[in-house]
Nucleic acid binder design. Sequence first.
DNA 1: CTGAAAGCGCTTACAG
DNA 2: CTGAAAGCGCTTACAG
Lengths: 349, 349
Amino acid sequence: MPLHRSRRVTLTDVAQACGVSRATVSLVLRGSPLVHAETRARVEAEMLRQGYVYNRAAANLRQRVSSTVALVINDLSNPFFAEFAAGVDEALGERGYVTLLGCSNESAERERIVLGSLVQQHPAAIILSPAEDSTAAGVAAALGPRTPLLVFNRALGGTAPTGFQFDFLGLANRSGARLATEHLLARGHRRIVFFGGHADSSSCRERRLGYQDALAAAGIALDPAWMIESAPTRLDACARTAALFAAVPDATAAVCYNDAVALGLMLGLAHHGRRPGVDFALTGFDDIPEAAVSMPPLTTLCADPRERGRQAAQIVLAQVAPGGAVSHAPVIAPVRLVERESSCHADFR
Amino acid sequence: MPLHRSRRVTLTDVAQACGVSRATVSLVLRGSPLVHAETRARVEAEMLRQGYVYNRAAANLRQRVSSTVALVINDLSNPFFAEFAAGVDEALGERGYVTLLGCSNESAERERIVLGSLVQQHPAAIILSPAEDSTAAGVAAALGPRTPLLVFNRALGGTAPTGFQFDFLGLANRSGARLATEHLLARGHRRIVFFGGHADSSSCRERRLGYQDALAAAGIALDPAWMIESAPTRLDACARTAALFAAVPDATAAVCYNDAVALGLMLGLAHHGRRPGVDFALTGFDDIPEAAVSMPPLTTLCADPRERGRQAAQIVLAQVAPGGAVSHAPVIAPVRLVERESSCHADFR
DNA sequence: CTGAAAGCGCTTACAG
DNA sequence: CTGAAAGCGCTTACAG
């Protein structure tokens, strides 16, 4: 017979039905060896019979612990961040934590609201992939003083209020972009542009620096006109292709801000009668799934976002663990060049 | 001066510092008009000073309510489901709920574990986008009898245990596929295959039925060889292109299971020397962001996953509301044909 | 307008 | 091996 929907079964119900105390049921729940085997069996059978569901929130309250970690994502429709979120959730789940999700949709204002709501659940820690215009002061205000924070992927804007400490996990943007540029240089290219991204985002700045490192090491003077901005999306990158050739008519290659931009540029090249990987070489950044199956496949830097998510979870759980590390040294994850055809057929040596 | 990390500030701390009772602080918290304005101001200032953070979990326990909804997603790296998740989170946030996230990675076993963990947080409801091999019996066992459930997108396998009730939100798979097929028929195509998807998934079965409806209405006899299976991914679809032309050498068009399959087929067509949208027409399903910017742009059916997420949230919150609807009639969201070039240049009338 | 007391569902010393 | 009692941080009648 189905039970009434009205009231949930509690530990007290089970204890009464078995004729034991609540303490005993609690011990059964936690697998204590103190309980007599026969008693344990009776209690467990009764739990099953009544459809008892453990209330972890109540247990957490009593124990003054938390079994959740909050994850705030700037853009879940970007596969890079979706993979990151999946990795976080996977690693948290393995350690018995539940993920509280929040999406900021690249708005610092929504981010603030979402953080304010999540922090009331008293998560053990917060993992934040910040919106483009997010500031350290705004995050600090929304968070209050006590919740450990890990910032992923890009730096918070502004200067941090004194005493506001957090972990950071980022990608090797500079050395990655340098790798990509060196790869194109090694194939004989000399007029290589840096294409896409917003110059005021920290990741774009860092990638441009790596590009400049490689050019300088090759003895090539940088013309600032060789760095063309775009929104970090396929659509805008496609539209900005004309700006690229207006600025540098004889460019033969582009280091793109990321894969979305690179795929947009491929489309734009086609509209301009240029064949990517044949007439013009290009590289991306991220190695999103589409990179491997585009026409031609895209040479890019693999950032392994799912693994980064797992790493982020591990860092915050280490902070939370009793006697956990309290160093807040930034962690920079290396990236790996994946050579594909978009950069391979075009040889201008 | 920064406060000690050791102990969180509670309502009791604030009350003591102000020389009022905890009840009064609680009333301030909840914006009660009973509290004297001067008292309220003193209490609020003290909260700010001490960095008090409301503990919603404790309040929920006392009030016997829940402020969370669990969301279990089969594949977050698929933009369709990622958008759905973003929509769910957005709509829940607007209503003051927090999303508990879980990912099953298309494994019914992980789904069961994830559900078991989430249900212990006592969410107000659960929204489940099931793994391919998920069964009603498995979900029922993991859930216990009391948590309202909404299943999204595909039917649970097996037969539901008696008394196991849940809501369902799905797409108009059959009528959508019929629309796509009729669109190709109207452009003169006669040898139209149905390409991709696993025949044993409910959505593939339904889309095939819509395809067959259209062919039958046009007086075209269906050859079972015209339905070619593939994994619902770009990569496998690309690989199965050879099977398509082996089975139906003179096919001129394909209704594809979804956009990923259609984009894979485009790639496969290129390898076979066929130009999509010129030599061969095709349609997708979902309208993922890539569909609009592929070469050529893909004619497809728009399912608006973000809006579906919002809709799912609304349905479960209506169930949960006091005196909420208890009808569990399935909701089928319509889809809309978006005509683009992949089906437009190829005219075989 | 404010306070004392009980209770949400659990855990944890402490007795026995 | 089991039970009585106190307490986690909040809310809610009930007095005053």
